[in-house]
Design a protein around this nucleic acid. Structure first.
Lengths: 187, 187
DNA sequence: CAGAGTCTTTGACAAAAGTCAAAAAGCAAT
DNA sequence: ATTGCTTTTTGACTTTTGTCAAAGACTCTG
């Protein structure tokens, strides 16, 4: 699924917008296990995962690697600190599979929104979607047990378990790898 | 701090915007422990806490009451499901202190954004701020211990402890009241 | 200020999750 | 198939957190 058809699903882009977008979008291939963005790096591009899977993770001072989240095909991805605040990214972004990523620069993003204000709707829609997901995630982490969170994930994104190692999934769920392994063995 | 001066801090509202806003803003007083929004209710207004404190919380199926978050003076607040998706709210909003709340309807909000597109900037800024906070919160819940989360809160919002009961703070931190009490006694 | 009600702390115990270390399983490349 | 590497599981033990119950402290009201 490419970005433009993805956007078409939501609002009908006129042919000029489509042409303008095609102009500024850069499409790149990356191999599995490629680091896209490292902590400390400035990366002011809005990405869209056309194929593959990105893991966004965080290194604690103790050196522990914690998955903040996975981004699969059809997701928009930014290094928020960089893209919105022009600060260095705190997180690492790496591909876990061969991936195709489309992206546009922050400047082009601002320009196209200025030229086609209808797109603002879409922008806001994406942010609302994000906020909704984050809110669910917060409440899950706040008052569900590890087992409940595991089962939610199994229901909402079963394919993740075929695609990602359990260590990464465990840290995403906020538990240790061993605990996840034990939860899984009990069924 | 009233809404308009609050907004002035960020961008310079022209006098017409200011007049238009003044027109549509409703200012209300609520006593302590007043329920503003109950689960199941449709509430399509954007609120701004001018004075006081709102607690947003969730009732699990087990009947457990978990604080999703606190909204203090100078915060924008909505029942997201209602305001953005026109669905019934899942959360309860209640004042924990006598509060003054300004609000505008969803329709007025849309209209004023259409009439004064400069405001869109501000709208987006508020969402970015929110997303940043939520991301921090998620990582904290994912890989910090209860004690670390307690200490962050103590650092970032020390006044909360003077204003809110420990039971509510405990559920906000994702721990039981007793655990919070024990963390506190060890220092 | 007495008494009801709420909030907070404490104790004893149970359950959940983390840690460390080692074994087992899986995978890829020779 | 064998070797080396990574991932996953298992076991033994520790730490953290939760639960239940009761006691103490605090607050508000009549």
């Amino acid at each position: 699924m490419n970005v433009i058809s993805f956007l078409q699903q939501t609002i009908n882009l006129g042919p000029e917008i489509e042409a303008d977008l095609t102009h500024i979008i850069v499409r790149e291939q990356f191999p599995k296990n490629h680091i896209l963005i490292r902590p400390g790096q400035y990366y002011r591009r809005l990405m869209f995962v056309e194929e593959g899977l990105i893991r966004e993770h965080y290194l604690s001072m103790a050196g522990k690697d914690t998955t903040y989240r996975f981004h699969t095909e059809g997701s928009f991805v930014t290094a928020d600190e960089s893209f919105t605040d022009n600060q260095p990214s705190q997180y690492t972004f790496e591909t876990l599979e061969d991936s195709v990523i489309c992206s546009i620069s922050h400047a082009d993003f601002e320009n196209i929104l200025r030229q086609h204000p209808e797109l603002e709707q879409l922008h806001i829609l994406v942010m609302h979607q994000l906020i909704r997901e984050m809110k669910e995630r917060i409440t899950a982490l706040q008052f569900q047990t590890a087992t409940e969170r595991y089962e939610s994930l199994l229901k909402s994104q079963p394919s993740i378990f075929q695609r990602v190692s359990l260590g990464h999934i465990a840290s995403f769920l906020g538990i240790s790898q061993e605990t996840l392994s034990r939860i899984r063995s009990k069924r």
